[in-house]
Design a protein around this nucleic acid. Structure first.
Ligand SMILES: [Zn+2]
Ligand SMILES: [Zn+2]
Ligand SMILES: [Zn+2]
Ligand SMILES: [Zn+2]
Lengths: 134, 134
DNA sequence: TATTGTCCGAAAACTATTATCAGTATTAGT
DNA sequence: ACTAATACTGATAATAGTTTTCGGACAATA
């Protein structure tokens, strides 16, 4: 029996979700905090964190694994991958269907019940790439 | 010409590397700190961190990406993948040769210069799996 | 509009990691 | 072996990101 939760739609939660869906930068909590403050100047950073976690629990947003120690959030929940610039930290979408289909093989090797995997590409974004001399 | 080596082989560095190579648990810095203190009771946690980073720079150990926010270390440097138990956090090796060869495709899609990727499997380890009733 | 209890802002607490610093000990050179 | 140079250590403080706490505010329901 699942415990019924009664989530309210507060102005804060609304704006946080709207802004996260609008931007395409996969912002950190702090970055989104600055974005949201343009509409809600009195909002608290803790409220941003709280709502991001709640929206994640509800499946309305994604949390990107904190590969570099900082958590990032994604308003696009349709399946896609990410590539992270190792110079500036920017995260871009990779609209490419990658089907690893390795779960059975990995399960046999490890004895784990495999539920998924984390896949994130690394590289240098066009802005950070050294200019070609000519 | 070879870069001049200025690193000293201290007892602390020696024991940290030995113990990390001995265990197969992919410990956090703190976990390794407790292990190493059995041989060097006066060692500092900062020394563990410092040496893990230095050994990593030297290519003698691996750092696992902090997918869940905590860094883990690996004394096995031969290429292999990992699977993390989502219940207890344990990380096990996956001795499976996976060559995705996706990097070129991703580069074409994103415009990034792709240098690598992070791949880590997720699942439930045998110890955490629910016992089958019969 | 009264009641209920979720939610908020502000601040403190917490956790993992890094930086600081005075004293120690490894290494190279004699 | 002795010495000098300096990488390194332990203890501690500082930092950064995130979570918790708590009294008051406010959305939801009737
Ligand atoms: Zn970049
Ligand atoms: Zn995305
Ligand atoms: Zn487990
Ligand atoms: Zn490993």
């Amino acid at each position: 029996m699942q415990v019924e939760r009664k989530h309210r739609m507060t102005r804060q939660r609304q704006v946080i979700l709207e802004e996260l869906r609008r931007v395409k930068t996969h912002p950190t909590a702090d970055e989104l905090y600055f974005i949201v403050r343009q509409k809600l100047p009195r909002i608290s950073l803790a409220t941003v964190y709280r709502n991001l976690d709640l929206l994640y629990q509800e499946g309305k947003i994604l949390k990107l694994p904190a590969v570099d120690g900082v958590m990032r959030f994604d308003g696009t929940v349709t399946p896609h991958y990410h590539i992270r610039c190792t110079k500036c930290g920017r995260v871009s979408d990779v609209m490419l269907d990658v089907d690893l289909n390795l779960e059975r093989k990995v399960a046999r090797r490890t004895g784990y019940h495999v539920t998924g995997y984390v896949l994130e590409f690394e590289g240098v974004c066009p802005d950070c790439a050294p200019r070609t001399e000519h």
